[in-house]
Design a binder for these strands. Structure first.
Lengths: 138, 138
DNA sequence: TCCTTTGCTTTCATTATGCAAGTAAATTGA
DNA sequence: TCAATTTACTTGCATAATGAAAGCAAAGGA
């Protein structure tokens, strides 16, 4: 997708990393929906196909956004986990969600969730990080 | 790029609108660099090609992010301006810039700009909006 | 020892991207 | 007044990305 660096612009850097239609949806599943396995990602409503999912997981891992390890409980599986670099994308995701909540008349996000994200971003971030064993500071 | 709706997820909505490698760079040129004409967008460091630029301008206008009108001073030109919907993407852009500033060792953004964006988001938004004739409140 | 589960890879058709060249309307200069 | 230039595209074509479907391989279960 984005093999080389296009410029030194920070926005271009972010877009080269996650500027496609699928990468952030995979991160959403991991960060917000607690998914960890390949099969779970496939089940998401958008219907990603198997080759694209495999490619994105590989890219995200190569870019240091995801770690991949065998599941000790079932060695056919792998567990995908977010790195700190991925957790630091939460503000980007939240702002995109708030923007869509404002402009999509058929949005699936409920008003109470919007309110929570708008009025307690920091608390939300702490809550998500806690689920991945990260305390308040880093 | 993203013809139809993939799901009711707000993140998917945003990605269908701006989830590609060019759309946000065009908006960056307009919102942050004061560019207004086709030729100016072509001059950006990333080197977008003419057909892609034309396509993205059309898409952004169709989605209500840009307005397009003839330049009265030079009727060969058109003036592209951001709508409120585009200005509301500033938080997304700022979060992406801050993320890249943290993780790109060769980032082009200077520490003082990073500090400004981090510590005075609201002031920054007001400043940008003022340039487009929008006061504090919408 | 099969059968199933899980995570892919491969194949191939369709679509998007990107470079280069061409087109057309508005403007300028001779 | 008309030829050159500016500005904003469009078109053609090659290459790359996407997507649907089928196939494959290792691990686990019956």
């Amino acid at each position: 997708m984005a093999p080389q660096r296009r410029s030194d612009c920070p926005l271009a850097f972010a877009l080269d990393a996650i500027g496609d239609r699928w990468s952030l949806l995979v991160l959403r599943d991991i960060l917000l929906h607690g998914k960890r396995h390949y099969e779970e990602f496939l089940e998401s409503g958008e219907g990603i196909s198997t080759n694209i999912l495999a490619d994105r997981l590989k890219r995200l891992a190569r870019q240091g956004l995801l770690s991949k390890e065998r599941d000790a409980d079932n060695r056919r599986r792998y567990i995908y986990r977010p790195t700190e670099k991925a957790l630091d994308l939460l503000p980007v995701i939240v702002e995109m969600v708030l923007w869509s909540a404002r402009y999509d008349p058929d949005t699936g996000v409920t008003p109470d969730v919007v309110e929570r994200l708008r009025d307690d971003r920091a608390g939300f971030f702490v809550e998500v990080r806690r689920r991945f064993g990260r305390g308040e500071g880093a």
